[in-house]
Design a protein around this nucleic acid. Structure first.
Lengths: 210, 210
DNA sequence: GGTTGGTCTAACTGTTTGGTTAGATATCTT
DNA sequence: AAGATATCTAACCAAACAGTTAGACCAACC
């Protein structure tokens, strides 16, 4: 499952393969992705995918794992450093938005993964999501204990924030392409960081504050 | 493109085909769906799909169109009857949630559609979405004019509501399957109507009220 | 300098899949 | 009842696709 790279050359090839795979899976999903296309974009012979990583499924799992696990860990670490519950909520939203901005391939992959019931989601990925939710649960509990938040389901909060962010990101191309959508909506930024994040932060905090 | 049914029998067959198609597209997405599988579930010979509806793409478009256009029209009609802006917002959320509950095939199809940049989204579907957004824009404007809402981007509000609802619906199987997710989250209802809708309504109104 | 082992390529294979066709059967029309 | 039209079936085809193979190349090491 895990290959031990025997030289720099090999490691580089593997990286190129995984990047190309992430790109193609993001664009077309697992069934839509063509192994030949991944090989073409990585600039390697198709047999190399099988030699270095494995079959189509192995490629997909490698991509998923790297994306989700990385996100969950970073989120946890940054939140640990914040002060008040409200600060922590802001950090959570800010960090989540930043991750999506920095890793634009993630939203479409996650959406498709959810759409197919997460049947191909590796265990480590599910654990990552669970950690994020219990993280928010902790923040909200602390807020309630300190009397600044009203009691609310952490999962719903995460659905609202993550749902809004992911759908916003992923809807960007559609929104920009459709001529009959109002001009001010079409010109909204692709990036979450900035006005979109600011507005969502404000709305969510108003929603949960006592 | 549009077949004129020449008998009840034909109409019935077409309906069975479209239902089966919606089911399979929802489960597997466009590239993952197998035409043979659709035919099998509809209980008709594969050639019948091509005879009555058209090729795979035509099948898909027919499914998408029926789902989205129907939703937009019903939403518009029900909102027209409500009173205050706050009532209208509640109706919009309630109606949207009800549509997703009644039509469980819609969320996965919509998500995948978005994930692939809506490239295969028929024009009529895009118009439906645009109508919903301008509908919300109208409600929010009215609320601002009456001094009950603070000015806020209608598209963002729709992203939050629709994003939360769709992601919530679609995440249900994953949430229920993962053992390490907290029990109280796993036991949350599959239906939006009820406590989930109530909580989201409350949160969204708090977020936009002056 | 030859042998070993990791890296890579071109060409191939077996299967799956979307789509077609030639013709059978039912239904309607006059 | 005869002909025409709509509905349906079984079998078929060509293209697309995931995955394989046999062997070339190249660096390191003895």
């Amino acid at each position: 499952m895990e290959e031990a790279p025997h030289s720099d050359k090999s490691g580089d090839t593997v990286e190129r393969i995984l990047c190309a795979a992430a790109e193609v899976f993001a664009e077309s999903g697992f069934p839509g992705a063509r192994v030949d296309e991944i090989a073409r974009r990585a600039g390697v012979n198709k047999a190399m995918l099988y030699y270095h990583v494995g079959d189509k499924k192995d490629l997909y799992e490698a991509v998923i794992r790297s994306i989700i696990v990385e996100t969950a860990e970073r989120l946890e670490e940054e939140i640990r450093q914040a002060g008040t519950p409200e600060d922590k909520m802001r950090i959570y939203m800010r960090r989540f938005a930043a991750t999506l901005d920095e890793n634009p391939l993630m939203p479409p992959i996650m959406m498709r993964e959810l759409a197919s019931g997460g049947t191909t989601l590796p265990r480590s990925a599910l654990e990552g999501v669970a950690r994020v939710i219990s993280l928010i649960g902790g923040i909200l509990d602390e807020g309630v204990a300190k009397g600044v938040f009203r009691p609310i389901n952490p999962f719903l909060v995460h659905m609202m924030v993550a749902g809004a962010f992911i759908v916003y990101k992923v809807a960007a191309p559609v929104r920009e392409r459709a001529e009959f959508i109002p001009e001010e909506v079409r010109r909204m930024p692709r990036e979450l960081a900035g006005s979109v994040l600011g507005d969502v932060e404000e709305m969510v905090l108003r929603a949960i504050r006592k």
